[in-house]
């Protein structure tokens, strides 16, 4: 179970990265959130069989992690934890969709394989953009940026609290699993019934904790609104960053760059 703690929720490193001091870190969080949103929208707006036109978008994560001084290996590891979900989504496409889609030299690829590759690529792009956003901005600032951008407060508060308590909760879950493992003979994995009980307990504890946290908030004058001292400042560089990237995304979106290169070479 320590696996969960160490690898899956290792937000600690992301958090540490977000305290870096590159000019990307100093940009207004809203700029970075918006740019990421445009990036993801551009990437998902292609039709299901697009592969080659998506490739230029790799430029964005590559450039940002370079400028921000982010460790690429670490980011790839984060992203690789998300990829299995993409695999699951696209798994049956090659089997179900056998119409010829494209030729790669002597090889003929079915539409299913193309859409499968497209899904993987999109998930890769979107999740690396998301991780880079977190690593350059930090979750709290992202949440507050969302609030300034008129995202309903209830969602923002949700994000803040999930981010704060996911660690506490995981720790509790890990402790319960450890207690189970220590007392289970043969070290068998818990059956469904046990899992249900553990999850049930976790829910009860969570409710209890929620009550105590609310109490702590109320006793310090909480009135439904979370105020903070953080101030954001939109400057010229924010405008340049946003406009620059959005133009690049539009270029990539409406012009198939790899096809151009092919034509030029041919």
């Amino acid at each position: 179970m320590s696996h969960i703690e160490t690898s899956y929720l290792d937000f600690g490193r992301l958090e540490a990265l977000s305290r870096g001091d590159s000019f990307l870190h100093r940009l207004d969080p809203r700029t970075k959130v918006l740019t990421t949103v445009f990036f993801v929208l551009a990437v998902i707006s292609f039709d299901a069989y697009t592969v080659s036109a998506l490739l230029p978008f790799l430029l964005y994560p590559a450039v940002l992690s370079g400028w921000g001084g982010l460790p690429v290996g670490y980011l790839l590891k984060r992203v690789s934890l998300v990829m299995p979900f993409a695999l699951m989504v696209g798994l049956f496409n090659p089997l179900l969709d056998r119409d010829p889609g494209a030729t790669l030299g002597p090889l003929e690829l079915s539409g299913g394989w193309l859409s499968f590759a497209s899904i993987l690529l999109r998930v890769f792009l979107a999740s690396s953009a998301a991780f880079i956003l977190i690593a350059l901005t930090g979750m709290p600032d992202i949440a507050l940026a969302l609030e300034r951008m008129k995202v309903p407060r209830i969602f923002v508060v949700q994000i803040l609290f999930v981010y704060r308590y996911i660690f506490v909760l995981t720790e509790e879950a890990v402790r319960m699993m450890r207690a189970y493992t220590l007392r289970s003979v043969h070290g068998r994995r818990p059956g469904l019934g046990i899992y249900a009980q553990i999850v049930g307990h976790l829910l009860l504890r969570t409710l209890d904790r929620a009550r105590r946290i609310y109490l702590a908030m109320v006793s310090r004058g909480f009135d439904g609104e979370v105020h903070t001292l953080r101030t954001f400042h939109l400057g010229l560089r924010d405008v340049i960053f946003l406009v620059g990237w959005v133009s690049v995304f539009s270029l990539f979106r409406y012009q198939n760059i790899p096809a151009w290169i092919e034509r030029m070479a041919g």
């Binding site: 930090g138 979750m139 709290p140 949440a143 803040l160 609290f161 981010y163 704060r164 308590y165 506490v168 904790r209 105590r212 946290i213 109490l215 702590a216 908030m217 979370v226 903070t228």
Partner: peptide, 9 residues
């Protein structure tokens, strides 16, 4: 439990 009290980021 200080975890209940320190709820901000």
């Amino acid at each position: 439990d200080p975890d209940d009290q320190l709820f901000m980021p």
